[in-house]
């Protein structure tokens, strides 16, 4: 049985006129892109808008993707730029915190509640970071990109990205220790 087609194959199909094949790429990458945008923007709804707009943009400019085998980083780059545009327009302090602990339910056990509180704490700390540090940390530790892939996404040099990740780790650790 033949496995899933590669990104290069799907891109070739789309560019050849098979528009519906683009749905395969959406299903393949939307989870990661949404997670990344949500961490960058602090709101799932805003992130969904940003990613949807980015995917439409990606489709319309698919022919300009020079290396379809690296489609994933190309898509992250489009979403990252969309997030930066949004953040540049928005008040810096206006970072919604949707990761507040969920309302306790009788079925929630103590471990789940503690986990939710920890997540809210980390999300809040992440929201406090400068956008470039937040971007670097999320790409590295949440999306699992290599520094080279991060450089492809952001257009920054690897030493710069390392410095941002280091600063972000220090800031997050500080918050975690303050609340330990």
């Amino acid at each position: 049985m033949r496995g899933d087609p590669s990104d290069t194959e799907v891109v070739a199909r789309v560019l050849g006129g098979d528009r519906e094949a683009f749905g395969l790429l959406i299903r393949r990458y939307e989870t990661g892109l949404l997670r990344f945008a949500t961490r960058m923007l602090g709101s799932r709804d805003v992130a969904a808008d940003a990613v949807a707009e980015s995917l439409v943009r990606a489709y319309r400019h698919l022919a300009s993707c020079r290396d379809p085998s690296r489609l994933r980083t190309w898509l992250y780059r489009i979403v990252a730029n969309r997030c930066k545009s949004y953040l540049a327009r928005r008040d810096v302090a206006d970072v919604p915190l949707e990761e507040a602990p969920p309302v306790a339910d009788v079925t929630d056990n103590e471990a789940a509640l503690e986990r939710a509180e920890q997540l809210a704490l980390v999300a809040r700390a992440l929201a406090q970071l400068a956008p470039d540090q937040r971007e670097a940390f999320v790409l590295k530790h949440v999306e699992g990109l290599s520094y080279q892939e991060m450089a492809d996404v952001t257009g920054e040099r690897i030493p710069t990205l390392k410095m941002r990740v280091h600063r972000a780790r220090e800031a997050l650790l500080q918050v975690l220790e303050d609340h330990a």
């Binding site: 989870t31 949404l34 997670r35 961490r39 799932r44 990761e99 997540l119 980390v122 992440l126 949440v142």
Partner: peptide, 10 residues
Amino acid sequence: LAAAPAVAGL
């Protein structure tokens, strides 16, 4: 952060 569910369906 990575495990938090991202609502898909775009």
